[in-house]
Design a binder for these strands. Structure first.
Lengths: 148, 148
DNA sequence: CGCATGGTGGGGAAAAGTGGGGAATTGTGA
DNA sequence: TCACAATTCCCCACTTTTCCCCACCATGCG
């Protein structure tokens, strides 16, 4: 049951006035009932949503990174943890997004929810669309070099 | 039930005129009812708040730590313990912070409460914000090296 | 059509953070 | 021993946020 989830696909949903965002039913089916999720800042201005297992794996990985300096290591952990937040589904399968993370990701009404295997990314649609367009060409170039 | 707590996330609360500081409800839920907490000096000018279990773990760790100089070890322990203070929640989930520790952490009205797994750190906001900004870059450099 | 499912929206109760009054406690010095 | 001041603690009150619940509507499918 607790196999690694495999989130796939993109969905365009809307954030309501109470900062709630629906998570696709297909994704919810991959998450054990009642389990909490970790919502965190991602790279390129998106948010990352992890089942708590996956986040634990990630944070252990990050913590074992070789940072020589203990002081840097403490700083690293502080940033990692302070950017994250525990969230859970309401009865309708939505998640309440903390204001801090709304601001970070510049979320307005329209949001994109992207399945990326073990994690789910959440983008402001106005950021996702140009990013997608720009990267798509790059993707095609790269793909032609790669054997699939 | 008494599993290791796992405090996650950052909250910006305010210290009132009676030196009381709210602890996030999400954190309180992880602490058995009626349990006292240990508040002590942390590194980089913050305060550390431990559930008594975590505090016990910390002091055991401290015993086994290898500091060549025994004198340094004693000194470190003295500072840590002498400034530590037992605190408990009032009816509203707040904690009274002793004047000594207020001064140590340069706490003004605005405070940041950071969940770091087994412990909670408390920062003066005016210290946390620049610290956060500065360390975030290091974090991004490290994080972008990691594949998940 | 009729029913089930999935996303959206909102009312309202409950919880959470903030502030302060005032009693109880503690400590100090006369 | 007493008086006084400072501190701590127990309440209560107010505002905002969160959460439970229901209702609506579009879609898909037998």
């Amino acid at each position: 049951m607790n196999k690694n989830p495999n989130f796939i696909g993109s969905y365009f949903y809307s954030l309501d006035t109470k900062n709630r965002l629906a998570i696709p039913a297909k994704f919810r089916l991959l998450i054990p009932n009642g389990q909490t999720l970790i919502l965190s800042q991602g790279l390129e201005g998106c948010l990352e949503l992890y089942p708590s297992n996956s986040w634990r794996l990630l944070s252990e990985k990050l913590e074992n990174i070789s940072i020589k300096n203990k002081k840097d290591k403490r700083a690293f952990k502080r940033i990692l943890f302070s950017n994250a937040s525990e969230v859970q589904f309401d009865e309708e399968g939505r998640v309440l997004i903390p204001q801090l993370l709304i601001d970070y990701a510049a979320l307005k009404k329209d949001a994109a929810v992207i399945g990326l295997g073990e994690k789910i990314e959440i983008w402001a649609k106005h950021l996702w669309v140009p990013y997608y367009k720009k990267q798509k060409n790059l993707f095609i170039q790269q793909a032609s070099k790669i054997e699939l």
